[in-house]
Each structure stands twice: as C-alpha cells, then as structure tokens.
C-alpha cells in the first residue's frame, strides 16, 4: 500500500470517528433531555402523591356522608312507598267491599221486585235484613190506609218490642220517624235504627214529586257476633229502603187493582146472569 492510500484510509477513519462522535454527542443530549423529563415526571408524581396523601381522607369522609345521605333519602322514599302501598291496599279492600255491597244490593233489589205479593215482599225484606245487615231483632211496618198508624208486617221482635204491633204516628221512635220522615240512628241502646220507607211520586207528568211514606223499618238488635253497625251497612240499608218502599207500594197497588178487577168481573157476571 502507498503512503497516499494510507493517508486516505486514515482520513476516512477519522471522518467515521467524527461522525460516530457526533452521534454519541446527540445520543448523550437525548439521554440528558429524557433524564430531565423523567425527573420532572418523578417530581409531578411525588407532588401528586403528597397531595393525595393529604386530601384522600377528607374526600372519603365527604363521599361517605353523601352515601349516608343517599341512603337516608332512599329509606325515606322506601317508607313513603310502603305507606302508599298500605293506602292502596286499604283502597283495594274498600273497593272490594263496595263491589260486594253493590252486588248484594243488586241481588236484594232483584229479589224485592220479583214478586207482587205484599207478604213475599215483606219476607224478602226480612231475609235481606237478616242476611245482609246482620240484624237479630227488627220490624217492618207499613202505613195503614188512613195514614194514622204503622202496622207490624213482619220481622223478629224481642221481648221488649212484642207490643209493637200497631204504632200511632208520632208515638215511639217509629211513629216519630214516620211523621218526620227522618231516619233515626243510635250508636247503642234498645233501639238502634229506624228508617222511613218512602217513595218519590209525581201526581202527573211534569208536576213536582212528593215523598210518600210507605212504612218504617226498625232494627233493635244485631246478631251477637256482629259488633257494630257500620256506615256501609247504614248506606246499604238506606238504598234498600228505597227499593223496599217501591216494592211494597207496587204490591199494594197491584193487589188493589186485582181486587177491583175481581169486583168488576163479579159485577159483569152478575149483569150477564140477569
């Protein structure tokens, strides 16, 4: 190898060395920069850690308080839902009772209007009072033709009421109820309830209706196992009284018509024979 070639080789190598040196310098700078970055990150993390160490307990406490508050709210909501549920259950029971009362009223009124015989109507009223109202001692009175007395038509009279076969208007509670056409209701005692049987009648179309008294129902004693007379019972009895009055009046009118018809038929037969 010549001297010139040697020099060239040395030059190349020194050039390569310089390049490598330059690269090394770049790498060192990058490493220093990265190192700086890492230091900063470490500082940040240390600061965050320190912050967390200081703040976390109070945060948790607050969170805990919030959760407790939420729990209290949920509990109170639960209580109000429970209360609402109880109200709805009670309403359901009330509606069921009213349905039951309506169904009973339907059957009772159907039975009352299914006959035109006065005694059968009275028997049906008695059945209703025993089976629906739960009365042990009671009486059904109708007003006589002269409208001066109440006549006992049916029922179950106890020893204290046995004399009540005819009651003048204005006498005793029944007579007073008949006269005033105002129901009587006592909480307890020997005479619990008296209800007038009245019907609203108009003498002719478009004329004003007049309440006509047909009779009185009195309840003296309930069945031993029936503790009290409820408002629903009272309502039912009032509704039934209207139907009973109509049924009694219909039977009375029908029987009157039948009697007249038989008289006229007899009269016609008599005329034919002559």
């Amino acid at each position: 190898m010549s001297k010139g070639e040697d020099l060239l080789t040395i030059l190349y190598k020194s050039q390569e060395f310089l390049i490598e040196l330059y690269r090394g310098d770049q790498l060192a700078k990058e490493i220093i920069a990265e190192n700086q970055n890492l230091r900063l990150q470490i500082k940040d993390l240390q600061a965050q850690l320190a912050r967390n160490n200081k703040v976390e307990p109070s945060n948790l406490e607050q969170e805990n308080k919030q959760l407790h508050q939420n729990l209290k709210q949920l509990e109170s909501r639960n209580l109000s839902i429970e209360a609402e549920k109880r109200i709805f259950i009670q309403r359901y029971i009330d509606v069921e009772k009213q349905n039951e009362a309506l169904a009973n009223l339907y059957v009772a009124s159907y039975q009352l209007h299914s006959t035109l015989e006065s005694q059968k109507v009275v028997n049906t009223i008695a059945e209703i009072i025993i089976n629906l109202i739960g009365a042990e001692e009671f009486a059904i009175f109708t007003l006589n033709e002269d409208q001066t007395e109440l006549i006992f038509m049916g029922g179950e009279l106890g020893d204290k009421q046995r004399h009540k076969k005819r009651i003048s208007l204005g006498k005793d509670i029944e007579g007073q109820v008949a006269l005033s056409k105002t129901p009587y209701r006592a909480i307890e005692g020997e005479h619990l309830i008296s209800i007038p049987l009245e019907i609203s009648l108009a003498a002719k179309p478009n004329s004003e209706a007049v309440n006509e008294l047909v009779g009185v129902i009195s309840i003296y004693k309930l069945l031993a196992h029936k503790k009290s007379f409820t408002d629903l019972d009272y309502e039912l009895l009032n509704l039934l009284a209207g139907h009973a009055a109509t049924a009694l009046l219909s039977a009375k009118l029908y029987q009157g018509t039948e009697r007249k018809l038989r008289t006229i038929e007899g009269f016609i037969n008599l005329l034919r024979q002559n």
Binding site: E100, A103, N104, Y106, V107, Q111, T124, E127, N131, L132
Partner: peptide
C-alpha cells in the same frame, strides 16, 4: 231456605 241468600252466595 232464603232465595235471597242463595242468590247472594251464587253472585258472590
């Protein structure tokens, strides 16, 4: 023996 009661029971 009460027709009303029979009907009430059937209805119920």
């Amino acid at each position: 023996d009460s027709a009303t009661m029979r009907q009430l029971l059937i209805m119920a």
